[in-house]
Each structure stands twice: as structure tokens, then as C-alpha cells.
């Protein structure tokens, strides 16, 4: 490098790094600091309590349950979303019946692509309103209304979708998957379009069916995109705050019901932080969330690491 170039580069790097340190790293450090105190959230007087908050955390049934709910989301949301998105993307791009000398999507694929993307333009808040109407617990709900009409559900005892411990997590998961599939479909489509057609054509000539060309060609060549999607969806699964707090039965504040069956770490944290006034304790939860998210990212990146295929 030429003389002076380092300074030039450093100049450009400094501002973003400084912003990052002030607005991301410093709050993390502060949170850690507060997590060692009995801060109550509405003033700056507090005492240092060492690791008491962390000790209490591992005996807090509600928080431990919430971790499990996040883990459940973590397992199912990425898997279901990615599989569906991959399937649809494959069908839209190369899944069509092969006519002479061409590889193409199913009929009307352009139309589908736009339709699938629709949910993604809705904000989470609108999504919550929408699905509250779908899951509404009396005959006025979309699902209940339909099921009552076709006689599957008794009008006197409609299904309380979000008030059933065994159903509430799945009901929430459906919202996230419905919301996410369109975006990842477009992501995967873009990646698929960069795969040279001649590879598919060669496979076709060799007699590969849809399944084989998907598993042997598409998936390996899309691995980078899948990995990215996995990390993003993992972060979504670790959060879930908006949907849980605005859709589920209220447990004091920030949803989480029935009986904490849908509580996730972020809702428990906010409830403790503001509603119970146990802010130092909530900061300890925040630190645990940070650690779990870090571990998750590292594990995901390691576990999905593969040889890169050049094409």
C-alpha cells in the first residue's frame, strides 16, 4: 500500500466503529453493570449485589420456561421457513415441466412470486392485529367462524387458540412462518437464478428428476444463502417480543399467557424491568439473552460451514 493510505482507510473506519461502540457496545457494558445491582428502574440509586441476580435467575421457573420456548422457536421456525421457502423457490424457478431445451418455473411463477412476498411488507404490529382477528376466540374469529360454519366446532365452545397451552406456541409460529417465507423465497430465487442453467440441463439430460436436481444441485449451490437465512431466522426466534406481547393472554403485562405458556425471554425481561420494577434483575436476563444469542450465532456458523463450490 502507498504511504498515507492506512490513514485514509482508518479515517473511514473510525466513524462507524465509534458509532457502533457508543450505541451498541457501551449499552451492553452498561447492562452488564446494572445486572450486578438491585436497580429498580426509575432512579439512579442502587446497591451492588454481586451475582445475586444471576443466582435468582436460575431458580426462576418463568424465565427457565421462557428459555425453552425460545429454543423451541429456534428449532422449528428456521427449519419450517427455510424448507417451505426452498421448496417454493425451486418450484418457481426450475420446477416446471421441462419443455424442449429449457428449464423454467411452474406456470404463473411470476404471479406467485409477488403474492408470496406480500406478507413481508406488513409490519409486525399489523400482523398481530390481523392474526388476532384470525385466532379470535369466539365465533367472530376467522378460524372459529369457518370451523363453526362447516360444523367442526360447537358454537358454544369455540377454540380459544391463543388460550390453549398446547396450541399457543404453534399459533405464533404459524404467523412468523407465514410472514417470513415470502422473503426467503425471493432470497433463494435470486440465488437460484445465478446458478447456470447448463448445469440443470446437463442433469436433465442425465435423467435427473426434480428431487434429484434439487438435492444434488440446487441445495449445495445455495448453501451460503441458506446459512444466512438460518442466522436471521434464529435471531427472529430469539426475539418474538412483538407477537407474544400483543397477541397472547396478559400476564400482568406483555402477554405471555396462558399461565406463562407463551412467555419468551424478552417478554419476561420487560415485565420484570418495568412492571415489577426489578430492573437490575431484568438486566441479568438481558445479559443471558446476549450470551445465548452469541453462542447460537457461533454454533450456527460453525455447524453449517461447508466447502464453497465455485461456479
Amino acid at each position: 500500500m502507498r504511504k498515507g493510505q492506512y490513514r485514509f482507510v482508518a479515517g473511514f473506519l473510525f466513524v462507524p466503529v465509534a458509532l457502533y461502540v457508543i450505541f451498541v457496545i457501551w449499552p451492553y457494558i452498561q447492562t452488564f453493570g446494572y445486572s450486578l445491582t438491585d436497580w429498580k428502574g426509575q432512579s439512579q440509586t442502587f446497591d451492588f449485589v454481586g451475582l445475586d441476580n444471576y443466582r435468582a435467575l436460575f431458580q426462576d421457573d418463568v424465565f427457565l420456561k421462557a428459555i425453552w420456548h425460545n429454543i423451541l422457536f429456534l428449532v422449528f421456525i428456521p427449519v419450517i421457513t427455510i424448507l417451505l421457502a426452498l421448496f417454493f423457490a425451486f418450484m418457481l424457478n426450475v420446477g416446471g415441466r421441462s419443455r424442449a431445451g429449457g428449464v423454467q418455473g411452474v406456470a404463473g411463477s411470476k404471479f406467485y412470486k409477488i403474492v408470496y412476498f406480500f406478507p413481508q411488507v406488513l409490519s409486525l404490529a399489523i400482523l398481530a392485529v390481523l392474526f388476532n382477528a384470525v385466532y379470535r376466540s369466539d365465533g367472530g374469529g376467522l378460524l372459529n367462524g369457518f370451523l363453526i360454519k362447516i360444523g367442526l366446532v360447537d358454537a358454544d365452545s369455540p377454540v380459544e387458540w391463543l388460550n390453549e397451552p398446547s396450541m399457543v406456541l404453534w399459533a405464533l409460529m404459524l404467523v412468523v412462518v407465514w410472514h417470513g417465507v415470502g422473503f426467503y423465497l425471493v432470497l433463494f430465487s435470486a440465488a437460484m437464478q445465478s446458478v447456470p442453467r447448463d448445469i440443470y440441463e446437463a442433469a436433465l439430460i442425465d435423467g435427473a428428476g426434480r428431487t434429484q436436481s434439487f438435492l444434488r444441485i440446487t441445495l449445495p449451490l445455495l448453501w451460503d444463502s441458506v446459512q444466512t437465512a438460518w442466522v436471521y431466522l434464529g435471531i427472529v426466534a430469539m426475539d418474538m417480543f412483538v407477537l407474544v406481547s400483543s397477541m397472547t393472554q396478559n400476564m400482568g403485562a406483555y402477554g405471555g399467557g396462558p399461565d406463562h405458556h407463551s412467555d419468551v425471554m424478552s417478554t419476561v425481561m420487560m415485565r420484570n424491568f418495568l412492571y415489577y420494577g426489578k430492573s437490575g434483575y431484568a438486566c441479568a436476563m438481558g445479559v443471558v439473552m446476549l450470551l445465548l444469542t452469541l453462542i447460537l450465532s457461533v454454533v450456527t456458523l460453525r455447524a453449517t460451514r461447508r466447502e464453497r463450490i465455485e461456479f
Binding site: 385466532y135 379470535r136 369466539d138 367472530g140 358454544d156 365452545s157
Partner: peptide, 19 residues
């Protein structure tokens, strides 16, 4: 005895008050 308004357990305050 089933005297609750059907579905009331899952309704918000505005939904059930409006019903």
C-alpha cells in the same frame, strides 16, 4: 355450567365489552 359467554376467555376488553 357453561354460563360464560362463548369464547369470552380469549377476548380483549373491547371485543368482549362490544359483544
Amino acid at each position: 355450567k357453561g354460563y360464560l359467554m362463548p369464547g369470552t376467555n380469549g377476548l380483549t376488553h373491547t371485543e368482549s365489552q362490544t359483544r
